[in-house]
Design a protein around this nucleic acid. Structure first.
Lengths: 240, 240
DNA sequence: CGATCTATTGAGCCTATTCAACCGTCGTGG
DNA sequence: CCACGACGGTTGAATAGGCTCAATAGATCG
């Protein structure tokens, strides 16, 4: 209840699109729903590809496994995001998908989806939109990684998270990161200490606020403050 | 001529798939072919999305433009790769696509492609494969960026390039980077000096060899040497 | 209540950046 | 025709940003 926020202006069209897509899936083809808990693997690297997954509720991370066994978080996925798309080309999933929270994941057979898409073009459109969004997001991720110092990367990460919530009509003034500092650091290409220092610095600048002792519930009075923080970091490294 | 190399074992199936896809496109729907030269923009950020492009010959880079105008190379694209996929969701391209070499780019209207895909499912499959490959590649890119020191990132970059050539049945013993050190550095998240030092180091270790004064023609006697160099870098940073 | 996990913070070190000088190539115009 | 400037590349020296190592503290759980 009360999921709709002040920011439900143009963003709620995106939330609506997600709802429509989930509805469409449910009515167009056999969907298997599954409840997942934090740590559950939705699929594993190397496993034969066959089904695509859509996050209905909850949050999921995707983790690449390098040849020598080291892990790399390569994506975060929220309500309406699709999982397993990287597996289409090779016929095998190329990463693990791990739930970060309790939630529900819907699964559809890729072949069945394509068949259904022949009758219902909106399904195809939804799939393409999801892939396209993922590609654009990956680009932004790359740019953050390449161009920003650690503190700004942390700020940018929080901004991304808040944005993802906002676009889905969820509350953005307070977000709860279901990730350890180590996980965040892995995703952002820095050490857990740097993440901690970055967050502390943001808190000291009153850009964010910790809401409990665990320090994973974070309040962001104004998301734009994160933006200007990032901008300032760039300016100082460029002009100096 | 003599494009097929020793390594044309399982890799040539990929080259064949590309050839088939290009053939399929040509026969299934109206394709506009265009000759491009180094520096030509195939599309621009912000431009209305409508058509997808496929690299027929040559090489193309995609460049993100941040809000404050700084550029970030987010992808490299060779024969058979699709361009513009990130534009589907928003209806606008989110990056520039710039030719790095003379080559030919084929363009098809997305809507027409989807229509044609109804009659010819292999078209749809080709599109999905391309998107899927791009996603998987982005993950690898991210992992390199997050987990490797500069020298290893340069080595990994050369390996990726050689691999891309090999999978397309092109010669891999000698590659010519149509990029300045600055461009490579931008793509790899490091300075041009670091790229230069990295390449010099690899040359000093006899892993690569420069073939001309311009130092963009690079010979790689054995691609696996790059792999083991990367592996060694990881080992030394992990164990130390 | 000890053991474990997560987070924070400090100190020292190292890697990669910054700044700078230098060289070779290329294109252009005096 | 050659001098000059612009550009791309290399290399060195100094600096700084982020990492490593280490100590501390709170939280959770058996």
């Amino acid at each position: 209840m009360a999921e709709v926020q002040l920011n439900a202006t143009q963003d709620d069209t995106f939330a609506q699109r997600i709802a429509q897509t989930l509805q469409l899936l449910k009515t167009s083809l056999p969907v298997q729903r599954k409840l997942v808990h934090a740590g559950d693997k939705i699929y594993r690297v190397g496993q034969a590809f066959g089904v695509l997954h859509v996050v209905s509720t909850g949050m999921v991370k995707t983790v690449n496994l390098s040849a020598d066994g080291r892990e790399q978080v390569v994506g975060l996925h929220f309500k309406g995001d699709w999982l397993g798309l990287e597996g289409i080309a090779t016929g095998h999933y190329t990463c693990d998908a791990v739930a970060m929270d309790t939630g529900e994941v819907w699964s559809v057979h890729y072949d069945a989806l394509v068949m259904a898409a022949m009758r219902e073009p909106r399904l195809l459109r939804a799939l393409h939109d999801a892939m396209s969004r993922q590609l654009a997001r990956d680009h932004d991720s790359l740019q953050s990684l390449c161009a920003l110092p650690t503190d700004a990367r942390v700020a940018s990460f929080l901004h991304y998270w808040a944005d993802a919530m906002a676009k889905r009509g969820l509350r953005t003034d307070q977000i709860s990161l279901h990730m350890t500092r180590a996980e965040i650091g892995n995703y952002l290409g820095m050490t857990l200490e740097s993440v901690s220092r970055g967050l502390s610095r943001l808190a000291r600048s009153d850009i964010i606020r910790f809401l409990e002792k665990g320090r994973r519930e974070i309040q962001i009075p104004q998301v734009e403050a994160l933006d200007s923080f990032v901008r300032r970091s760039i300016a100082s490294t460029t002009t100096a």
